Simulated assay, not measured.
Amino acid sequence: MGKEAQDARNFTAPVEDHELGIRYEKYKRILAGLTIMSDIFMRNVLKKQECTEYILQVIMDKQNLQVKEQILQKDYKNLQGRSAILDSVVCDMEEKRYNVEIQQENEGASVKRARYHSSLLDVNTLKEGQDFEELAESYVIFITRNDVLGYGLPIYHIGRRIKEVREEFPDETYIIYVNAKIQDETTELGRLMHDLQCRNAEEMYSEILAGRVRELKETPEGVDSMCREMDEIYNEGIERGLQQGMTQGLE
């Protein structure tokens, strides 16, 4: 390497390190204000499976519910149409399936979207050669900042019914809306909704969720992990901007 190139490299590295340091300080300030209702933070909280398990236990009112496996932020394919990235897809020990979505805006939790997510669970669960009767019982759960359905209730359970006889239609597919606006501290569900919107671990009721929030916000390893993920998002944005600029320049 020539002297001029080496000098340029020695100059560039400190500048890049300085810029990265500035970004990391900004990320730390952003991290301090995040809650589990924030997409990037929710994804990292749920990487600890016991957090997902606790949330489902409360929403399903089933304390013995155990998570067998979960997949976060997976792109569920529809070969004939639109695919969708689902926040969290869970299988419990009884082989029931759950799609847990946390939504800040009403548009992200529309009833038609819930229907579509339910269909994606089915088409991505049943394998070739399996009988339709082997479809798993499934739940699409939207936890929403606002009362999307508008009836003023903390939780809504939706299932199909046979209109003429007023009996349940037993296809075992269900949709649940949880209204995070109601934080009734006298109920376990209300306390969970409170915790999902807390910035500080010490204000949370659940030790399971509080422990994970402390890990991500208050330990060097957790903070570094979150900052690195935010920097990846930053860099992806820069790359997309450059690609769009190049595309527009060719048009």
Rank of each mutant, 00 (worst) to 15 (best):
G2V: 00
R9L: 15
N10H: 04
G21L: 00
R23C: 00
Y24S: 01
L34R: 00
I40Q: 05
N44R: 13
K48E: 15
L56K: 03
M60T: 02
D61Y: 08
L65Q: 03
V67D: 07
E69L: 05
E69W: 04
Q70K: 11
K74L: 00
D75C: 06
K77Q: 13
N78M: 11
N78I: 09
L79Y: 14
R82E: 14
R82T: 10
M93N: 14
E95A: 07
E101H: 01
I102W: 01
G108I: 02
G108P: 03
S110C: 04
L121F: 01
V123Q: 10
T125G: 13
G129W: 08
F132T: 06
E137S: 04
I141W: 05
N146D: 11
L149N: 02
I155M: 13
R161K: 12
E168A: 10
P170G: 00
N179R: 03
I182T: 01
T187S: 14
M193I: 03
H194P: 04
C198T: 08
A201L: 04
E202R: 09
L209V: 02
K217V: 01
K217W: 03
E221M: 08
D224R: 15
S225K: 15
M226E: 08
E232C: 13
M246E: 14
M246G: 12
L250Q: 14
